[in-house]
């Protein structure tokens, strides 16, 4: 059976959750094989990949993968594709994942589908477009399907197997070494989960009233182990950093639980969170359109409701 290649997202030698989701999904499509691009592959990664069913790990241990933007990863991935002859290639729908997918499509002359939320055994991809208002089924009709999959689309389930490592030597071309990474800057302490990957997201909007108002939002997020998000109104006003914006011009999230506080629910915002599995809303205005999306909503002052919720979560955690 032709393998299903899964491009591994990793940091500090550890496989990210979205990759475990993709391996789980890949098992329903064929035999998963992982592709590790860059340094850092070791026992920790190997045991994670084996636990989630990867029979093979193609490893390109070459620092060019991380020292230059995207192009070397695409060349390496194209080389692995040539060697492995996969039935499909799955990549996480991160900003970089989609860029790799796009460039790979040109290199291996194959169609590409981005932002899938599900893939059927016949490789038909399901996409949720226009802010979740329309469900689309798409197929790749030329070459090897390249599909990027949104985080939180599949619940990761372990299914241990024996993993064999295959090292792939890729001479990176001079042309692919054009955009050199000269430094990396962490804007904030990474104590919270990544917004796009988080199982729970707690967001604040115009109703939060100012930067100091985000204190109650962060406290609730921390009690739930959640990521913090913000509406465009809040990021445009400079109340919260721009990279946390959820919406049409920001990040798209589909966590297990999304808690929207003081957010009215304009299309701009809904487009980024409408596919969340469960939505809880706190807003003073009972007419706010966000209530249409709510599984549970409280009409009230977020500065009363949210701290009370935080206390209650703490209490129940014991």
């Amino acid at each position: 059976m032709a393998p299903i290649l899964v491009v591994v997202e990793h940091a500090d030698g550890v496989v990210k959750k979205v990759t475990l989701e993709l391996l789980t999904l890949a098992r329903s499509l064929g035999e998963p094989a992982a592709v590790w691009l860059g340094p850092g592959y070791g026992d920790a990664a190997a045991s994670q990949l084996a636990e989630y069913g990867a029979g093979t790990a193609y490893v390109v241990d070459n620092s060019d993968m991380v020292d230059f933007v995207v192009a070397p990863k695409t060349e390496a991935l194209a080389a692995v594709v040539k060697q492995a002859s996969p039935a499909a290639i799955l990549i996480a729908s991160s900003a970089e994942g989609k860029e790799i997918a796009g460039r790979l499509a040109i290199k291996i002359e194959s169609g590409v589908i981005t932002d899938a939320v599900a893939i059927a055994p016949d490789l038909t991809a399901t996409q949720s477009v226009f802010g979740g208002s329309t469900i689309v089924h798409s197929t790749v009709t030329h070459g090897i399907p390249i599909i990027t999959v949104r985080p939180n689309s599949t619940a990761p389930e372990a299914a241990a197997t024996a993993l064999s490592r295959v090292d792939v030597e890729v001479p990176v071309s001079e042309g692919a070494r054009g955009a050199k990474v000269t430094g990396r800057t962490a804007a904030t302490k990474a104590s919270r989960p990544e917004l796009s990957e988080a199982a729970i997201v707690v967001s604040g909007g115009r109703g939060v009233g100012g930067p100091e108002g985000f204190g109650v939002i962060e406290s609730l997020a921390d009690s739930l182990g959640a990521a913090v998000g913000a509406s465009r109104a809040a990021t445009d006003a400079g109340w919260y950093p721009h990279q946390y914006q959820v919406g049409q011009t920001g990040k798209t999230v589909s966590p297990q639980l999304y808690v929207a506080n003081g957010i009215s629910g304009a299309i701009q915002h809904r487009a980024g969170m409408q596919t969340s599995k469960m939505i809880v809303v706190v807003n003073k205005d009972s007419e706010a359109p966000i209530f249409e999306l709510a599984d549970f909503g409280v009409v009230g002052d977020l500065f009363a409701v949210v701290p009370q919720l935080t206390d209650e979560v703490q209490k129940r955690k014991g």
Partner: peptide
């Protein structure tokens, strides 16, 4: 000439109304 095609599409089914309470 597109290498990917839309097989079909549909409007997302409307979400069942949730529980809304006053604080």
């Amino acid at each position: 000439a597109a290498w990917s095609v839309v097989a079909d599409f549909a409007a997302r089914p409307p979400k069942a109304a949730g529980t809304i309470v006053n604080d």
